[in-house]
Design a protein around this nucleic acid. Sequence first.
DNA 1: TCCAGTAGTTCGAGTCTCGAAGTATCTTGC
DNA 2: GCAAGATACTTCGAGACTCGAACTACTGGA
Lengths: 141, 141
Amino acid sequence: MTEDGQVAAIRAVHEVFMRTEAAITGPLAELGLTTATAQALWALDPGEEPPSMKAVAARLHCNAPNLSFVADQLSTRGLVERVPDPRDKRSRALVLTAQGEQVRAEVLRIVTERSPLSALTPDELTTLLSILDKAAETPGR
Amino acid sequence: MTEDGQVAAIRAVHEVFMRTEAAITGPLAELGLTTATAQALWALDPGEEPPSMKAVAARLHCNAPNLSFVADQLSTRGLVERVPDPRDKRSRALVLTAQGEQVRAEVLRIVTERSPLSALTPDELTTLLSILDKAAETPGR
DNA sequence: TCCAGTAGTTCGAGTCTCGAAGTATCTTGC
DNA sequence: GCAAGATACTTCGAGACTCGAACTACTGGA
């Protein structure tokens, strides 16, 4: 019995993800970042309205205590700040500092340089993206 | 400046991977497995010649001490056995037990059921696989 | 006003991952 | 044959991440 297409595709996604992680861990460490902190940094887009911690936790598929932990690390390094929301005093937005924006740009540079996906053509990237987006948009189970 | 195609594709791979993990963690726990142990189990194909620990570590992109740790867990649960290689007494092959084969099949079932990729058509899966394989095959960095 | 619900934090435990060091075995070059 | 270096794996100890439980502060509705 041969492996079916879905199993092979899942394995391939997994493989690309693991290779990416393996390739970027070292360079990120030189920036004083781990995979977890780099992911959180990536999730903060300088061009958008600063998201609440709850929103960021949802993006990262992690829970509140975990995000608190990661935010502490980024905050200690001066890369993000917790800004109180005047409309809801329980809520705090995560905002990139100037240095945070610089380091985030570095992260993006490192990842795009080292990712196996850098071997693909623009057309392939477009196709890949449309397929993965369709999968991700489908309401989770 | 808008996000380029490669960044978007990397994010999409990441997203699908994270969703898959989030969706399978619970069901795997009911089998007494974690993500790490399930990945190791997945990496052992019942149809192939049992791979050495070194070979499995390479597949999982982890190092020797880590695989030793994971193999201990699977071994304690009676899912794999370490079989000495008669040709090289330093080496040990990881072999699925009968129960290990059953549990591995369960893992595959759970993952294929819950993965976001289950929303894709066979054609899309084929296209996805060919693109990702091309990326993964390209010599790392 | 009261009270259930929400956002975030703190704490403690569990798991994973890795480097360093150690053991046993293999292989190379003499 | 044999010493020296390399290899496969294990053990140990530390660091990092993740999560549930419990807590604080605040919100919004009855």
